[in-house]
Design a protein around this nucleic acid. Structure first.
Length: 272
DNA sequence: AAGTAGTCCTGAGTGC
DNA sequence: TGCACTCAGGACTACT
């Protein structure tokens, strides 16, 4: 499930593989993947357009073309892969044929992902309208900000970290890992986080995301970079997916419990 | 108004 | 081995 580091790598991969290329033809295999314009009109609409510079906002990918802009979300199992024509990934929903004889495949096994198409003049407005909070690796994500959004909230700190309207880009994996790093119990409610604990949480979130960016993201489930390579961050997880494993900090056994529908992994020994 | 349930999907996991 | 069943999970909508 791609989170901020994985989405960033897809954006970097798109810019390496597709920027400046021209879309020769478009195929739509699963029309509901496309929103904003009629899917059957997409080939005629996008053919001939040159691909601009992709950027990321939260877990969204914004891809400007000449006359239209794409707002993409990979959700859980989405992939954007560049390959030769004959090497098509499973569950491909949209194909861009490029002028270098390769293709960009937009694939998604669970069909949760979407490609929203807007006129290029509306792309910035569409981005601004995304219901997203601050970027967790940006200047705005400060201990003071986190303290403000936690104040008076009975929801768990982990749930708050994962709320895209408050902080954009953190999912289940990095919320679990960041809270382990900070030594904070993921089930503790936001309004019971002490003033001195916010800097540690903010520091941990930044550290875990920056480490993941440096490792090219984590490849679990279906995540791949645009060039098909895997990230290696999954090899550095301490708690996520490590139920019944041993905490390297205190030797307690890692546990898993659902919180608001999502599996929380944490160490009861040293996360208080 | 904040929080919960339902929805979309299908591969993977479980039980028999 | 295989079938039937359950479930995860990001973000959105519809309730309470």
């Amino acid at each position: 499930m791609p989170e901020l580091p994985e989405v960033q790598r897809v954006v970097d991969g798109l810019n390496e593989a597709a920027r400046g290329r021209t879309i020769r033809a478009v195929q739509v295999r699963w029309p509901r993947y496309v929103e904003g314009v009629a899917a059957d009109g997409l080939p005629a609409l996008l053919a001939g357009q040159t691909i601009g510079t992709a950027r990321r906002r939260g877990k969204y990918i914004l891809l400007p073309l000449e006359h239209h802009g794409l707002v993409l979300h990979l959700r859980m199992t989405g992939q954007i892969i560049k390959r030769p024509a004959g090497d098509e990934p499973a569950h491909t929903h949209v194909v861009f044929e490029l002028d270098d004889e390769e293709r960009i495949f937009f694939a998604d096994a669970r069909k949760f992902g979407r490609m929203v198409v807007v006129p290029i003049g509306e792309l910035d407005a569409a981005e601004a309208a995304l219901p997203l909070g601050v970027e967790p690796i940006g200047e705005s994500f400060t201990p003071e900000y986190l303290r403000t959004v936690c104040a008076g909230r009975a929801r768990s700190i982990k749930n708050i970290l994962m709320d895209q309207r408050l902080i954009a880009g953190i999912g289940n994996i990095y919320a679990c890992e960041a809270l382990w790093l900070a030594g904070i119990d993921p089930f503790r409610s936001g309004d019971r986080i002490g003033k001195k604990e916010f800097p540690a949480i903010v520091r941990a979130v930044r550290e875990i995301l920056e480490t993941a960016l440096a490792h090219g993201g984590a490849s679990i489930s279906d995540y791949r970079a645009v060039n098909g390579e895997s990230g290696t961050m999954q090899n550095h997880f301490i708690v996520y997916g490590r139920e019944k494993g041993t905490c390297p900090r205190c030797n307690e056994t890692i546990r898993r419990l659902p919180d608001a529908g999502r599996s929380s992994f944490w160490c009861p020994g040293c996360q208080k």
